[in-house]
Simulated assay, not measured.
Amino acid sequence: MNTQYPTNTTTAPATAIVTGGASGLGAATVRRLVDTGHHVVALDLESSIDRARAEGTALEPVTYLAADVTDPAQVRAGVEAACAIAPLRVVVACAGILYSERILHRGGHHDLEGFARAISVNLNGTFNILTLAAEAMAAQEPVTEDGERGVIVLTSSVAAFEGQIGQAAYAASKGGVNALTLTAARDLARSGIRVNAIAPGVVETPMMAQITPEFRQELEARVPFPARLARPGEFAALVGTFLDNHYLNGEVVRLDGALRMPPR
């Protein structure tokens, strides 16, 4: 049975949900949405939220909720919490994992559980928040003369286009996000919900802090211009563009400085 989400149509500020909101791309997006007047509910693993609080990067106005994006009950609880604050108008799905393994290697063949885990988090988890959030948005009154009720932004990757050696699982999961974007935009059009995706290249996230200076220089040299890693704030700025331009729908936009990934 479908949950009956609140349909608050007052002038209260809009609510936004960001999955993976405690670090990296998600944290930058949370900051951007707070700055534009949204109340943000950040869903992330409890360990990630605890780390953000310990490091002092958690933002005071934000509601942080522990949730695994692959768990429908936990994600539904996050959606209900957001709707109880104010109408849910924005969802940005940033939660994801990396997985690297060659299809054939010295130890044998690609682990099926590893492949399934990447699909579960990156694709199934994205679909989980997409569907539950869309259900809530569709129950609310439109906020534009065109009948728009909400905007959903998914996170893909340049690996969906140019998967490198060892990225079979990751590339397949992000390719699924690409395929989902237009279909979801068409499915949800009658509900006044726009769906777009961002496909980042190499981004300066906490994960990149672990690489050697030499490897970082190699990555930056591959980017035509500007020859550096993307900044999380640039991802968040593109989210803002999707929110502001109401004719952007069903698009996967690369954010990569004209990078095209080589085989390895």
Score class of each variant (00 low, 15 high):
residue 104 L to Y: 03
residue 100 S to H: 12
residue 66 A to Y: 02
residue 62 V to M: 02
residue 102 R to W: 00
residue 104 L to T: 14
residue 71 D to N: 13
residue 76 R to G: 10
residue 74 Q to S: 14
residue 98 L to V: 01
residue 85 I to E: 04
residue 105 H to C: 09
residue 63 T to L: 12
residue 109 H to V: 11
residue 108 G to V: 06
residue 69 V to K: 01
residue 61 P to G: 03
residue 62 V to R: 01
residue 80 E to D: 15
residue 100 S to K: 10
residue 96 G to R: 03
residue 93 A to R: 05
residue 71 D to R: 09
residue 59 L to C: 00
residue 104 L to R: 10
residue 110 H to E: 15
residue 92 V to Y: 14
residue 66 A to F: 02
residue 77 A to S: 13
residue 78 G to M: 05
residue 83 C to R: 10
residue 83 C to N: 05
residue 59 L to T: 03
residue 71 D to E: 14
residue 56 G to I: 07
residue 108 G to D: 05
residue 95 A to N: 09
residue 104 L to A: 13
residue 70 T to P: 08
residue 97 I to E: 06
residue 57 T to I: 01
residue 74 Q to H: 04
residue 112 L to E: 12
residue 86 A to W: 00
residue 91 V to Y: 10
residue 72 P to V: 04
residue 108 G to N: 08
residue 100 S to W: 01
residue 69 V to R: 03
residue 59 L to A: 11
residue 89 R to G: 00
residue 106 R to T: 13
residue 105 H to P: 10
residue 104 L to P: 01
residue 63 T to A: 09
residue 59 L to F: 05
residue 96 G to A: 04
residue 112 L to S: 11
residue 57 T to L: 08
residue 102 R to Y: 00
residue 109 H to W: 14
residue 99 Y to D: 06
residue 78 G to E: 14
residue 79 V to P: 02
residue 73 A to K: 07
residue 78 G to N: 05
residue 88 L to R: 01
residue 72 P to E: 11
residue 98 L to T: 04
residue 57 T to Y: 03
residue 65 L to W: 00
residue 74 Q to D: 11
residue 107 G to W: 06
residue 77 A to D: 15
residue 95 A to P: 07
residue 65 L to Q: 12
residue 83 C to A: 14
residue 73 A to W: 03
residue 100 S to N: 14
residue 87 P to K: 00
residue 60 E to I: 06
residue 87 P to R: 00
residue 76 R to L: 15
residue 99 Y to I: 02
residue 108 G to R: 10
residue 58 A to D: 15
residue 66 A to P: 09
residue 85 I to S: 03
residue 55 E to H: 09
residue 68 D to E: 12
residue 88 L to G: 00
residue 62 V to A: 02
residue 58 A to G: 11
residue 70 T to M: 07
residue 63 T to H: 09
residue 108 G to W: 13
residue 60 E to D: 15
residue 69 V to A: 02
residue 92 V to N: 01
residue 68 D to L: 06
residue 88 L to V: 04
residue 82 A to E: 02
residue 76 R to V: 05
residue 92 V to M: 09
residue 88 L to P: 00
residue 110 H to D: 10
residue 55 E to I: 04
residue 76 R to P: 06
residue 101 E to S: 09
residue 95 A to R: 05
residue 81 A to R: 07
residue 70 T to C: 12
